[in-house]
Amino acid sequence: MRILLALCLLLSAAAAQADQLDTVKKKGDLICGVLGTDEPNSFVDPKTRTIIGYEVDLCKAIAKKIGVKLTIKQLAVAARIPELQQGRVDILAAALTHTREREAVVDFSLTTFVTGQRVMVRKDSGITQLSQLAGKRVVTVRGGTQEPNIRRAVPNVEVITFETAPQALVALQQRKAVGFVNDEVSLLDAYGKLGPAQKDFVLLEQSISSEALALGLRKNEPAFKKVVDDTLRELEKSGEAERLFMYWYGPQSRLKYDKRHFRIETDKLT
């Protein structure tokens, strides 16, 4: 164990020495870590069997700007930050919430999406307010900010977590809990997929948090961060960011957002 630890430390030290932008250019390949199970951010296109989505398009733009090819790597929610820290991916585009706690271990790009987390409950539970969840069982996905946020919003709630969001949704459908906590977008998407079963479920109006999603970058790589942020700024300026949002989230998509409530402009939390 001690040897393993020492090895991990050595490897991360070695990775930290070289400038990441140069390394990426040299190997000619940008490895972008995505979830791949999170429509429309990143998901498998049933026709081509490749991973596509809003976050994938952002990665494409960055790879193009650096002038290298893009490799997409699928990650579990809980594996995102460790994979980035250990250098197995160059950048995270994996519905990563920008938090102050995480700022200690990774750097964030400009905010690429603003959303909240909400709770979907079974209608027959009679729950209409967050506070009614006290003492009740809710399910969510492991490794994200969902669990700490729902505990903060409803101190006495009982939380059970699973490896993936679809598993948590199944547990809700099977009545193993009264509520399912997740990012608003994922919830809207899940709700859309329920089909006729929609009548048994309802999304609570109140958000449990407001979240800024951003791309995750390894700490202290200023040159790499500058390229990423410049790319995002250019997307915003050219109107491409707006177009991408409308393509993946707009009225033609399943999520049916009528307009974009944010702009890609800052990497600071408010």
Binding site: A78, I81, R102, A104, V105, V139, R142, T161, F162
Partner: peptide, 18 residues
């Protein structure tokens, strides 16, 4: 399956502390 045994709690601690 969400049983809160040692491995589950370890992942929870890892998420909270990095």
């Amino acid at each position: 399956i969400g049983t809160a045994e040692l491995m589950y709690q370890a992942q929870r601690v890892e998420t909270a502390t990095f």
